[in-house]
Amino acid sequence: MKSYLAAAVQMKSKPHLIHNLGEAEDLIQLAVNQGAELVTLPENFSYLGDEASKMTQAQEIAEQSEKFLKTMAQRFRITLLGGGFPVPAGENKVCNTALLISPEGQELARYNKVHLFDVDLPDGNTYTESSTVQAGNSLPQLCRTPQLGNIGLSVCYDVRFPELYRHLSKQGADILCIPAAFTAYTGKDHWQTLIQARAIENTAYVVAPAQTGKHYGMRYSHGHAMIVDPWGTILDDVGVHPGVAIAEISPIRLKQVRQQMPCLQHRVF
């Protein structure tokens, strides 16, 4: 593993596939121009609209999203994460799928979100992800890359389930990716705390691309895409507007923190 720059992209995706892919391309270009070799896109990067419209277009969204990720990774010679898009799964449902692509345009890892967001919030919004999404049936497997380190995938609501990240850290994760479309209501209180907690308890980098602002109707996202180091220090935070967080992933820093706080070696259970 070498030192390199990672990017966490922040988008304001809409119910318009082509528009979103154009915005994603611009932000990938911005990250590459700053030297990023690992670029991560948020959950719902290619489409963020109501469930009925999503399901009607699911096949096209899936095909165009995967084609886009492979094309961009090859064009810019980067490792690229699409943090979550619908992939038809039969029985009128889709999987919420994160896909990691190599600079050669090859699939490195695929993960279907296992924890689904079925929540009634005090702000009047109700989310029932399970109405259209089929939960994944297996924990994510670590993607081991010689240059960029060991990368673990997850998606949004997974961040509230620390056992998933402990599973990844036990496999040797150096970087935990947490692409999200975190709601504005919960994000203001929980997003930063959860991201830092996952970094600290696993002494790993966390790269967390995010959605921000108003998407449609009453759907608002919190923003604050960020990159956090293994000590829990926020290295970069985009804020509330679309943009890119950039930070160095350093194997020296990773080793230093794990020597100073060897909690992964002290696990009892």
Results as ranks from 00 to 15, higher is better:
residue 3 S to P: 00
residue 10 Q to I: 06
residue 16 H to K: 08
residue 26 D to R: 11
residue 33 N to I: 00
residue 36 A to C: 14
residue 43 E to R: 10
residue 45 F to S: 03
residue 50 D to K: 05
residue 50 D to P: 12
residue 51 E to H: 07
residue 52 A to L: 05
residue 53 S to K: 03
residue 60 E to Y: 04
residue 61 I to W: 09
residue 62 A to Q: 01
residue 63 E to M: 13
residue 65 S to M: 08
residue 74 Q to C: 12
residue 75 R to S: 15
residue 77 R to Q: 15
residue 78 I to Y: 08
residue 81 L to M: 12
residue 95 C to W: 13
residue 100 L to I: 03
residue 102 S to Y: 13
residue 103 P to D: 09
residue 107 E to W: 00
residue 117 F to W: 10
residue 118 D to V: 09
residue 119 V to Q: 13
residue 127 Y to M: 08
residue 132 T to G: 11
residue 134 Q to L: 15
residue 140 P to M: 06
residue 146 P to L: 04
residue 146 P to T: 02
residue 147 Q to F: 01
residue 150 N to L: 01
residue 155 V to G: 08
residue 163 E to F: 05
residue 166 R to Y: 15
residue 167 H to C: 03
residue 167 H to R: 02
residue 173 A to L: 08
residue 176 L to F: 09
residue 177 C to Y: 02
residue 179 P to A: 06
residue 181 A to F: 08
residue 186 T to C: 04
residue 188 K to E: 15
residue 188 K to R: 14
residue 193 T to F: 05
residue 198 R to H: 00
residue 201 E to V: 14
residue 203 T to R: 14
residue 204 A to H: 05
residue 205 Y to N: 01
residue 211 Q to G: 06
residue 217 G to K: 07
residue 224 H to E: 07
residue 225 A to S: 14
residue 248 E to M: 01
residue 248 E to V: 02
residue 249 I to E: 10
residue 250 S to M: 04
residue 263 C to A: 07
residue 267 R to F: 07
